[in-house]
Design a protein around this nucleic acid. Structure first.
Lengths: 303, 303
DNA sequence: TATTGCATATTTATCAAATAATATGCAATC
DNA sequence: GATTGCATATTATTTGATAAATATGCAATA
């Protein structure tokens, strides 16, 4: 790989290192040990080293020989420009397809070749991107050749549908027979939400806000101990991210209210008042739906 | 392609042609027009022609020049041997991995190369199979190299989890704000279930029974008008098929009871008594769970 | 008038060697 | 006692020409 460029995995790792540090509000000088990072991210040391070396070149971290890498400044104060890691070709193609689809500039049925002619790139890249989209659930292979797009959360209608599902599933998660919160995760979530409620959102990007939100809801699903429920919630979150990133990036009042509602729910969970947690959760989802589902957020409504 | 062999798509089409004819209890001599079949199956004429030519060689259908293909005998009376269409390499590898996984002969984490060494086959085949499994939700890519298996519906525990999800989702589908049954589909389902309840299961294989069951539940989900709910139910059905095909192939009394319950639910849906339909559905799922979730059905329980 | 049977245009799969990245172990260092 | 930095072993991706299927249109036919 040419000097200065990263593989897709290395790019991802670089982004995750920054996200982690920011999530934990790491101070300047904080040590970033490669093995711990590798474990947290789920990869081997090697890509972590490459990512850290890159971040050092970018000035985000400092390198001390034989001692390792250290944050150059408080994680929350790293400016947007410095922490912007380039995206791989896969990622770029993916987003171009998302955009085209959200703006209804793509037909409901198409072929790989047609997409290649339109967007360029290699077959291998396109194949990977289509597989990813298939995994996310908004495209499927037709019987022989070709692909068919499925509805995305890209209209008031579909958005309502996704909330309808979540309103049923998430309270069920909390009330499930195996529900059991993980203490450490609960504490971490609480810290995040407190930081947010306490005005921390000033140092947060729209993307970080969305991820924070997703982590909260995913944790509840994970604590249900039901892998199928978790899988479903994850999928809804992926789809929401796609749309919300563009639409409802963040009214500060809305952010503050969401966090305080999240905290209330975490409180109820902590004192094992599950009925109350489920009720609050249901109200929370109902409120979030009302806040977000407004025609103005969507470019065009679908029938 | 060598004479006598079919492409994977052609094999699939051949199987679907037979399944369709049997589903509709087509009599001997029934005409099988290629374009209608192609439309029903979602492909072009070409693979349908190849599949019909193959079925003619196998004696399942008769070919009259310039008139087309016709069932050689009543669809329900086609013997098992005659309608067994060979499986593609993909399909075989898929089932070998399913078996190995269900019997806990595979580690939780592995690599494509390791699987190749173990099962043979080409990288491309394995890649496709892994993508399919990923789509079904019981494997996922690790960050760099390798794959991690997720819990399958292969233990009492996981089976309970899947039913917990369905018990919440399916009644919600029926009660959903957009629920609206499609008359033609409802009639077709009723006919199938009546045939079954009336002793038709004698002419049915275990696989056909499972598919019938899945079609019923999928139809309810589709009528909800909520694509996300449908997607989730579909996924659960895929997984159930994997396991039930091996475990609970079919106690006749159980089959008869299931069909009559299905019919009751369809009745309630037809007279738009949704509350009752949802209630019956919930009871039905509860009963089905009790019938099926018995440790004896599973080779070994997981913790 | 619908359907078949076949021809043509597109699309996708296949191949294996070369290349590139990731996983892992461990002596050196703090 | 943990961590780095680097070497080595595995694993996975890329490539583009060739071959094989699938999609589609239409004259001939029942």
């Amino acid at each position: 790989m040419a000097a200065g460029t990263l593989t897709p995995l290395q790019q991802r790792v670089a982004r995750e290192i920054i996200a982690l540090a920011r999530r934990e509000n790491r101070p300047a000088g904080s040590h970033l040990p490669k093995i711990a990072l590798a474990k947290a991210i789920g990869t081997s040391h090697n890509p972590v080293e490459a990512a850290l070396a890159y971040l050092a070149r970018r000035g985000v971290v400092r390198h001390l020989p034989d001692r390792g890498y250290f944050l150059a400044r408080d994680a929350r104060l790293i400016d947007d420009a410095a922490r912007r890691v380039p995206h791989s070709g896969d990622e770029r193609l993916y987003h171009r397809i998302v955009d085209a689809r959200l703006e209804q500039r793509l037909p409901d049925e198409t072929t790989a070749s047609a997409l290649l002619r339109r967007f360029g790139g290699t077959r291998a890249t396109l194949q990977r991107v289509l597989t990813r989209i298939q995994q996310e659930g908004w495209i499927e292979r037709k019987a022989g050749h070709g692909w068919a797009f499925l509805p995305l959360i890209d209209s008031v209608e579909a958005y309502e549908d996704s909330y309808e599902l979540r309103r049923v599933l998430e309270p069920a998660a909390v009330l499930g027979r195996k529900f059991s919160p993980v203490t450490a995760e609960l504490a971490a979530l609480r810290a995040e939400q407190l930081f947010m409620a306490g005005g921390g959102h000033a140092h947060m990007t729209a993307g970080e806000w969305i991820d924070l939100n997703a982590r909260f809801h995913e944790a509840l699903a994970r604590w249900s101990g039901n892998p199928f429920l978790l899988h479903t919630i994850r999928r809804m979150n992926q789809l929401r991210r796609l749309v919300e990133y563009r639409a409802v990036a963040g009214d500060p009042r809305l952010r503050a209210r969401q966090s305080s509602e999240h905290l209330e729910i975490l409180d109820a969970v902590e004192r094992d008042d599950r009925t109350r947690a489920a009720l609050l959760l249901q109200r929370h989802l109902e409120g979030a739906r009302r806040d977000k589902v407004q025609p103005a957020h969507f470019r065009r409504g679908r029938p």
